[in-house]
Amino acid sequence: MGKTIAKSSIFLNFACVLISAFILIPVVIIFLTSLDPAKYIRFPPSGFSLLWYEYFFSNKVWQNGLLNSVYVAVLNTIISVPCGILAAYAYRKYTFKLKNIFNTIMIIPYVTPSLLVGIALLMAFGRTILRGTYFIVAIAHALWSTSFIYILMQAALSNYDFTYEEAAKDLGANLFQMFSEVTLPLLKSAFIAAILFAFISSFGEVTMAIFLVTSKTVTLPVLLWTSLKYELHPVATVASVICIIFAIVIFMLITKFFGTGMLSKIGM
């Protein structure tokens, strides 16, 4: 690409390093303090130990939180990935009159504050049997994820040539054969990325979950929230590190399957 003009100046590079530091330092700090055996959080760390990690993994409550988060994230993935992908696929493949309206509807949950969605769901289902179930938490997350995956897949599908599917049909493939022989292999990495995105965005979600979980279904971020509300206990750093590690792993998988090109499509 002909980006010859305005080679990044020293100022720009310097500013870049500072901003990157601003973005990353909190994460680094949390990681360092999680290895500090002291009872009170302080910097610099007074030593090095895995004490709080042992504490975390031997504690039933935290263990449960972690498991619940995984359950919710998996359930969310199962719900939101098909919804988002199918809609994005329809958006790219067909032209129809109400396209713009459908498109707007699909994006609304993405731009509605989670706080309000959480409250609305609590009020609507707080007195039904769905109250505090994994299902309702996953559904809350799925509203956001579906929108998000829809936006991402639209971008991914913009490079996809639907003629391959027509060719398959033309050569005698039925709908199922077409999907398994052509669509799936060609869009495999996009689908994997969608799954990973759905999982991680649900795993770390806290604003809606605060309103919807009960002590039985409490997820890791909410547990972190409640425990930090009362005291700055060092085990919270471990929980945070675990959240971060999940994010890093998924992040690396996404870049491996997908490259960063797709990642930069997250902006509006």
Partner: peptide, 20 residues
């Protein structure tokens, strides 16, 4: 009759050879 059940075949403009 849907395309996959017809006794005709098409050579597409962009050929559409399956890249995988």
């Amino acid at each position: 009759v849907p395309a996959h059940k017809r006794d005709v075949c098409m050579v597409f403009q962009r050929l559409a050879l399956f890249p995988h």
